[in-house]
């Protein structure tokens, strides 16, 4: 007969929390929370494009003048991003392995579309962030922005960038994925932190839906406004 291995409470040797299922989820929640902060701040900052070039470019100058602090923020975000992706993929692989034989008849009762595609919307966001950095930050894909970048003319970079239908399309599609990702993330994060109860579970789901719509409308409004000539070069 097989030996049954059970670590009872008395002889219990605690495993390192980050290796446990809930520990990994907590890491996803904590890192995810900072991205929600970043995504919100980045959107509000960039929406200043509607206030004209002076406002937006002054904001860009303020960010640049942070100096070392800017690099601390960048490195923290990069580290958190790496942790979020690493554990996201690890959890997904473990979850796949937990059901080696799928059901012949598979149905969805309560789970939302956005909750089921977290890995794919997440990987789409990763690809987008790489492109976004190459496009606007490192100006690898469009070297013609170099002069604008040197003068920190973020306004003109945005207008020139989004005037291209293909680039705008990439941004819009990416923001749809972002919106789907945060739609589930908001509720999921609070649930993982244990900050929910019977009353707050449905409420947080609705807050998640609302936040996802705000993010989508806020971000997508910028390329759309450029394409509709609401925002133009001065």
């Amino acid at each position: 007969m097989d030996t049954i291995q059970v670590s009872t409470m008395s002889s219990h040797r605690p495993v390192t929390a980050y290796k446990s299922s809930i520990g990994m989820k907590l890491l996803m929640g904590i890192t995810g929370f900072t991205f929600i902060g970043f995504v919100t701040g980045h959107m509000i900052g960039n929406l200043q494009v509607f206030l004209g070039p002076e406002k937006l470019n002054a904001y860009a100058h303020t960010l640049q003048s942070l100096g070392a602090l800017l690099w601390i923020i960048r490195l923290s975000l990069f580290t958190f991003f790496a942790v979020h992706i690493f554990f996201g993929i690890k959890l997904w692989l473990e979850n796949k392995a937990s059901r080696p034989i799928p059901y012949v008849k598979e149905v969805n009762v309560e789970s939302t579309f956005s909750s089921r595609i977290m890995i794919w919307s997440g990987l789409a966001m990763f690809s987008f962030v790489v492109y976004h950095l190459l496009h606007f930050t490192l100006i690898v894909t469009n070297p013609e922005y170099a002069v604008l970048k040197e003068n920190l003319d973020v306004y003109s970079m945005m207008v020139v960038g989004f005037s291209n239908y293909w680039i705008s399309a990439v941004y819009v599609v990416a923001m749809i994925f972002l919106s789907l990702h945060v739609n589930h993330a908001v509720f999921s994060m609070f649930q993982t932190f244990g900050l929910t109860n019977a009353k707050w579970i449905p409420l947080l789901r609705r807050i998640g839906n609302l936040y996802a719509i705000l993010i989508l409308v806020g971000y997508v409004s910028m390329p759309i406004a450029v394409l509709l000539n609401i925002i133009t070069l001065h």
């Binding site: 291995q5 059970v6 670590s7 009872t8 409470m9 219990h12 605690p14 495993v15 290796k19 446990s20 299922s21 809930i22 990994m24 989820k25 959890l91 473990e94 979850n95 392995a97 937990s98 059901r99 969805n108 009762v109 309560e110 789970s111 939302t112 909750s115 089921r116 977290m118 589930h184 509720f187 999921s188 649930q191 993982t192």
Partner: peptide
């Protein structure tokens, strides 16, 4: 001690992790 012991055993048994799908409920 209980919550850690039970979660550790749950992980050892090869169950998946929670994605908050709410299908279980």
């Amino acid at each position: 001690r209980r919550v850690r012991a039970m979660i550790d055993q749950m992980d050892v048994e090869g169950f998946g992790n929670c994605t908050n799908f709410q299908e279980c409920e």
